[in-house]
Design a protein around this nucleic acid. Structure first.
Lengths: 257, 257
DNA sequence: CTAGCGCATTGACGTGGATCAACGCTGGCG
DNA sequence: CGCCAGCGTTGATCCACGTCAATGCGCTAG
């Protein structure tokens, strides 16, 4: 349930807005403006986007977009977690990313009018905004401001994928894990940190591109670098030492992505 | 030298345009319109982009953009090949993509005004268009048509990276090679094909995410699937069989990317 | 409290690919 | 003509990781 508290300022409003029977359009009026994606747009444009948006709530393990089908909506996650995975022709599937509240997905498919490359599946119960794809495209094609906001966004997503490719090619699972853990600590100067993993280790393993067993071993390997774990609670005792193993290199820090 | 013939309709003009001493601005007038990236823009917008563009020629092994530095130009390749690679903090480097004529690069960096994530290095002598980054951003911010063209382009790039991530996580080097070879043959119905690799095997290995030695073994493994090689000349004797090994799944075919 | 389930850990073993080293082939050059 | 440099291939060995199987641990339900 901890995930429900992630973005409580949104949850409050959403709680009123959403009866058990679905979305109430009227109360979404100021919602679009609270999404980082659109917050810098002027009000009239936000209204036009709101007019083609809908807030939806779905249960766990629900497929929001199926690989190979055409995009109907751009989704923005309000609450919960969504796993993006891509399955190859032989049926094996790779988890590409796990999304957290306020992140959006399938933007590239919507913009190119090409079939989804990934399947988006809710990890637990989720609440999200669904923006009509064709409607959005109509706005994007005329409004440079909207196009620019999305341009920035897709570009950033592209850059995270480049980093992921590089890390898969160059780093070991333990290094990727170290890097992931270091990215969880906000305070760049701290020598010590403690936090909870945002999802269970099975998902984390998939996100890092390895099996759960191997993730276990990676955690074990990191113990000599001052990493202590109790279930999903993680303590980093010696951040500088961990950084020496898995440098979260200058370019992967948040303000560069 | 074979690469000089790739896009002869451009080469002709470029040959006149470019004296040994560099670019001649006047003759670039219709150049922007010939780039797939901009061909659908109306003439007045193309002119504005041309005004901030320059044609340049550089020798082999020349760094066009250095990872970590700020973007100054958007580059479009006219002739030659450019390798995009990303180096991790420990100094190891992964080749992410090899570009061919008419492709562009570092678009995401330019659009986000963030430092390059990759180093772009010419493989052989190249001719390219360099578009001033800030000038382009100025146009993009006001002109929805330009923004949309780029939006489409970055989205497609994003999708190719997603495929690359998936393939790295799921497929073996031999499968990736098979897939790459199948992508070289245009005719989807042919049972047999013959062509030349566009670059040497060292680069191909890097592009596929393995060592040269392993690429050799991958070629050896594919021999039993009807793949025959003589230097850079490749013959696929039994495309259906190769497809069974390395399905270039529906989603990685060109009209989906 | 205990049974039982699900997640996490640990061990044994197989495989893909990296690394290191040797060798062949080809093409330029003295 | 023979030498040498560069690319490609092949073999031996090592390491990271996947797979399979057994065990441990914390949780909830009875």
């Amino acid at each position: 349930m901890q995930k429900l508290t992630f973005y409580s300022q949104i949850d409050h409003r959403a709680d009123n807005r959403l009866g058990p029977n679905g979305a109430d359009m009227q109360i979404t009026i100021d919602l679009i403006g609270t999404l980082p994606l659109f917050e810098r747009l002027e009000p009239s444009l936000r209204l036009r986007i709101e007019a083609i948006s809908e807030t939806i709530a779905v249960g766990a393990d629900h497929v929001l977009s199926l690989q190979g089908t055409m995009p109907k909506h751009l989704h923005v996650l309000l609450e919960g977690q969504v796993a993006l995975s891509s399955t190859a022709a032989d049926g094996t599937t790779a988890l590409v990313e796990v999304l957290h509240p306020l992140e959006h997905f399938v933007l590239a498919s919507v913009l190119t009018r090409l079939p989804y490359l990934m399947t988006a599946r809710t990890v637990g119960p989720c609440r999200l905004v669904a923006i009509d794809a064709e409607g959005l495209l109509g706005i994007v094609e005329r409004e440079a401001a909207v196009a620019n906001v999305l341009l920035h966004s897709v570009s950033r997503e592209f850059r995270t994928m480049v980093c992921q490719v590089r890390d898969l090619k160059l780093r070991t699972a333990a290094q990727r894990l170290g890097c992931y853990l270091l990215a969880r600590v906000k305070d760049g100067t701290a020598e010590r940190a403690e936090f909870r993993l945002p999802f269970d280790k099975g998902l984390l393993a998939a996100r890092l591109g390895c099996r759960q067993e191997n993730l276990s071993r990676a955690f074990a390997a990191l113990r000599s670098y001052g990493v202590e774990t109790h279930g999903s609670r993680v303590i980093l005792h010696d951040i500088p030492r961990l950084k020496a193993l898995a440098v979260p290199d200058e370019l992967s820090d948040p303000n560069v992505l």
